[in-house]
């Protein structure tokens, strides 16, 4: 066979580099000048980061495989985070789930306490997410932002209908915002513009294009991420934010990751299947340009970390 010359694209743009964490442990995501893992074409200065999802109270609805894998650590977010770091987490996503009005409806005081405890237990950078109700998000995230001053955490979710208070808290405490849009490219860019209009720097934003799990809209998420990444590399600074994907949450929500009865025998063993569902969703989105994937199962964390390491090795 005649030798084939590898086509090399020259990109004008660069993905913003976002710094997270405090003096003890810093993490940078983004900074790419090429598509995922194409080392021959441009720079990928930082490997994609693997985050582990920790909730501020034990999540009763999680699948038995997940609960068994974390055991008693789930009783306390600080112990859970510590164990996650031991499994290789580059950073921790701390969900303030208990603040949801339908949950324990906890408030800013509890949020502050939880964040302080987690931060004093682990050095790993933190991404703090509210319960997803605008009013409560604003309340607990402002408290969390203050408690985490000096540790440069990320706060989310900023959405088109609710971002101003969270952005103000980011600006006041030098934190990063997570901007979430519903698998919609035009809105993703627009929200970045709106946030920057408020005065937050473009290198203080992670964008969440909304993850669809394998079999549940993964291809839509993939196309939107691909298009955003191409635009960012072509020089569109308002599309050049590192991307953040809540993989574990979406993958473990699906029937394939949960069902043990009434399904074809060919689906096989639940544990194997559920872990693969999360792993393949994560891998696909890493290939679409994800800079942070949030996972749930410790074994999947280890598998994804190992794969990333291989893909980051330059020949």
């Amino acid at each position: 066979m005649p030798p084939v010359e590898t086509p090399v694209e020259k990109w004008a743009g660069k993905i913003h580099e976002v710094n997270l964490g405090g003096d003890a442990r810093r993490l940078v995501v983004g900074g790419e000048t090429t598509l995922p893992f194409l080392h021959f074409e441009g720079a990928i200065p930082h490997p994609p980061a693997v985050a582990v999802e920790v909730q501020d109270r034990p999540p009763a609805s999680w699948a038995p495989e997940l609960r068994a894998s974390w055991g008693e650590a789930m009783e306390d977010p600080a112990s859970w985070a510590k164990k996650a770091v031991e499994y290789g987490a580059d950073l921790i996503v701390l969900y303030l789930s208990s603040a949801h009005p339908d949950d324990q409806n906890t408030g800013p005081q509890e949020a502050k306490k939880t964040v302080t405890r987690v931060l004093s237990t682990v050095d790993a950078p933190l991404i703090i997410l509210g319960p997803g109700i605008a009013e409560k998000d604003n309340e607990v995230l402002v408290a969390a932002a203050e408690a985490a001053a000096g540790r440069r955490v990320a706060l989310g979710f900023c959405e088109q209908k609710n971002y101003r208070t969270i952005i103000a808290a980011c600006m006041a405490n030098n934190h990063v915002a997570v901007a979430k849009t519903p698998v919609e490219i035009n809105l993703a860019k627009q929200l970045n513009i709106l946030i920057c209009d408020m005065g937050l720097a473009p290198d203080s934003i992670l964008m969440d294009p909304t993850t669809g799990a394998l079999g549940y809209g993964l291809e839509y998420t993939y196309s939107v991420m691909e298009r955003l990444r191409l635009a960012g590399l072509q020089g569109d600074k308002m599309a050049a934010m590192p991307m953040f994907c809540t993989v574990g949450e979406e993958a473990w929500r699906q029937k394939e990751a949960r069902a043990t009865e009434g399904i074809p025998a060919a689906w096989g063993d639940i544990a194997t299947r559920a872990l693969r569902w999360e792993e393949l969703t994560a891998m696909t989105l890493l290939l679409a340009g994800a800079d942070v994937v949030v996972l749930r199962h410790p074994q999947v964390v280890q598998r994804i970390k190992a794969t990333i390491q291989k893909l980051m090795t330059k020949e």
Binding site: K189, Q190, I193, L194, M238
Partner: peptide
Amino acid sequence: IYAHSYLQT
């Protein structure tokens, strides 16, 4: 990419 504020970018 189109965004409502594309003229700004």
